[in-house]
């Protein structure tokens, strides 16, 4: 019996359409993401790309600073980039689920006309990429600890802050991903690029690999409007403890303040995503976009 079947047999799950849809969608997403290769090849594929991404930054940093990996700025850059893997995966994940279902497998019309909870279905599809992304983050961080002496020590991690900011931050990110996915439902063109564009913009404005103070003053405010900015800051503080590099743009916020801001983003984005999804599904049906095959 598969894990998904065991979860589906739980009494709580059996009673809830939304939960059943979520579990099945997560299982489906995992199968789609992983079953094109044998487990070893899939593991290599899941690790090589993020590692290469972070190594580009490592080499750039090493060339300029003569490999000053002990400087807190290096840990700031490395951890920020490693965590950002999750942002990219979650923000674009739901959009890709829509594109896959609609354009590649051509089953979107069947799925969204079936009596299932479409909102939790999309959440479930996003979770599969979240799982893959989480593994990539852990391996990337482990690689940094082992090869570059990244100052992350299990005994020094602020576990409560890590746990709370992970839950709140990932909830906010998942809701953002859902908004992007729902938006994809309403698009006839350019849906391939929108998720990447948003993720790319957030990479630039959220201080993922450099402090916001490096940005021109007239651009910094964008960073303050993004949940990713606060999530990355909270996660860095939790993981790096006293070794975290502190920059004046966010240093004035206490840990509690960061958590409160993240909680606010999570709640607002959850509500917005639920309404936005309903509007987007309705719009895509009205405009005949639900079963569109653009051939792009």
């Amino acid at each position: 019996m598969t894990i998904s079947q065991r979860i589906l047999d739980l009494p709580l799950v059996r009673r809830s359409d939304a939960l059943r849809t979520f579990v099945v969608a997560t299982w489906l997403g995992w199968q789609i993401e992983s079953n094109w290769a044998d487990p070893f090849l899939f593991a290599v594929y899941s690790i090589v790309r993020p590692l290469a991404g972070v190594l580009i930054l490592v080499v750039m940093y090493a060339v300029i600073t003569a490999s000053a990996f002990e400087d807190p700025t290096f840990a700031y850059i490395y951890v920020g980039n490693a965590l950002y893997i999750l942002v990219g995966m979650v923000i674009t994940g739901v959009s890709w689920a829509i594109i896959d279902d609609r354009e590649h497998y051509r089953v979107a019309k069947n799925i969204f006309t079936a009596p299932l909870n479409g909102y939790t279905y999309l959440f479930g599809r996003g979770v599969a990429r979240l799982i893959i992304g989480s593994v990539s983050v852990l391996i990337t961080l482990g690689f940094g600890i082992f090869f570059f002496g990244l100052p992350i020590r299990l005994s020094a991690i602020d576990w409560p802050l890590l746990l709370v900011s992970s839950v709140l931050g990932l909830t906010a990110l998942a809701c953002l991903g859902l908004i992007m996915g729902a938006w994809t439902l309403t698009m006839a063109r350019h849906f391939w690029s929108v998720g990447d564009a948003v993720a790319g913009a957030m990479y630039l404005f959220s201080g993922a690999i450099f402090p916001l103070s490096v940005l021109p003053v007239w651009l910094r405010w964008i960073g303050f409007l993004l949940p990713v900015t606060y999530w990355l800051e909270a996660m860095r503080r939790a993981l790096l403890g006293d070794e975290v590099a502190s920059f004046d743009t966010l240093a004035f916020l206490s840990n509690q303040a960061l958590v409160a801001i993240l909680a606010g983003f999570a709640v607002v984005l959850f509500v917005v995503s639920a309404y936005f999804y309903r509007w987007a599904l309705h719009t895509s049906k009205e405009k005949g976009l639900l079963d569109m095959e653009s051939g792009y």
Binding site: I64, T73, I77, V214
Partner: peptide, 8 residues
């Protein structure tokens, strides 16, 4: 911006 942050 990363290069600028590390004074390249």
């Amino acid at each position: 911006f990363l290069y600028r942050a590390i004074n390249a």
